[in-house]
Design a protein around this nucleic acid. Sequence first.
RNA 1: GGAGGAUUCGCAUAGUGGCCUAGUGCGCACGAUUGGAAAUCGUGUUGGGUGUUAAAACCCUCGGGGGUUCAAAUCCCCCAUCCUCCGCCA
Length: 420
Amino acid sequence: MIDLKVLREDPEAVRASQRARGEDGGAVDALLSADERRRSAVSRADTLRAEQKQFGKQVGKARGEERDALLAKGKELAAEVKAAEAEQSEAEKELDQAHRALPNLVDTAAPVGGEDDYTVLEHVGTPREFDFTPLDHLDLGVRLGALDMERGAKVSGSRFYFLTGIGARLQLALLNLAAAQATEAGYSLMVPPVLVRPEIMAGTGFLGAHASEIYRLEEDDLYLVGTSEVPLAGYHADEILDLSAGPRRYAGWSTCFRREAGSYGKDTRGIIRVHQFDKIELFTYCAPADAAAEHQRLLAWEKELLAKIEVPYRVIDTATGDLGTSAARKFDTEAWVPTQQSYRELTSTSNCTTFQARRLNIRYRDENGKPQVVATLNGTGATTRWLVAILENHQQADGSVVVPAALRPYLGLEVIEPIA
RNA sequence: GGAGGAUUCGCAUAGUGGCCUAGUGCGCACGAUUGGAAAUCGUGUUGGGUGUUAAAACCCUCGGGGGUUCAAAUCCCCCAUCCUCCGCCA
């Protein structure tokens, strides 16, 4: 939810943000009038309640006929209060709905436009020239005994897979590397629940436009998370944090589940786009004033990790129209995938400012000891998809794959050889 | 799945319809005392909303929601969470 004070003081800024996202400006005016209605309803109900309270005290003292008269009048007042309270709660419900319907305000520094209007901030490394025809990650994975899509489909359907043998070990090595770096950087490593309650899922902003992406367990009214951002954001819901020692940083290690609805036919080969994968997710709670700097730090940590797997990549500043509901700004890193001759997203870091925290009621005490809403940010540590970039970029003519130096201590191998 | 118990201000507790504007202890903050400290004494100490330039004032908040009543921490109903036990399953 956005800050209603900002809305009241500068509705035009909110409308501009909506336009930048390519969304409806009418939602802004709906929210403004809902806010107006709620305030007048609250004020009416407050006045009546005050009157009734004073009145109730007189009844307690009165006796006899006087008491009977007061009781009659009291009944009237009670009915009025009840009506005013019903009006108030109706107005509050409407406000909440309108409030939650509005996505976060975009950062004015983010490039305006649709999916393809991102800005490339930098290129790191140079795509390798192959003197042989490189195999894609699926062919490589099968030859190395690392990946089995067919049995994944047999057991669970399309977009499911088994990481087998060295594939499973490679993923563990990668996630351990990421977990170790995150721990060193001051993140607390967390293994969170991957099933969450509706209010937590809604609080992180995933039940709006992207609800169809999410698995829901109807019987239990729980959602499977698409990233541990969700449980990590919920971790401090309804709390007032002490941030006097600096931001709270968590690294979540979890499996992630995505329905990939609407992506039929896209990336059907291999493990680029799958229903289930593993990820280390970086998550920060900090004072809103520190959020932009923390966002840069998250990006820097992602780049540090990418350097360790030694793949060429670029960094993009995502356009406003392609931002998630909660994000004000988002930087993606995209690794070069040789067999696709293109860059594919490996990490994504979003500054959600106070948007999620306002929904989840997460605050901190400012220097005056007053509760204020915190800012939340998230970024990718490492994911299953990284295996694609590692395998393809480090393959050799004989079908073996050189293990990047930083991964060797975690895998215990310098080269992964084909099994047959 | 079943039975019982619990949920009150950071923590611990008191509170069985109006004197609860929620008491007490601990903790915490500030002050007094002291050469300084401990002890002691005093004052303050949930969060949110309406309102205001700011304040004042007012309203809500005793796990959540609903109900009874002129009036609910207190009575009734539903739900959540935690604990104990039984059953079932792994």
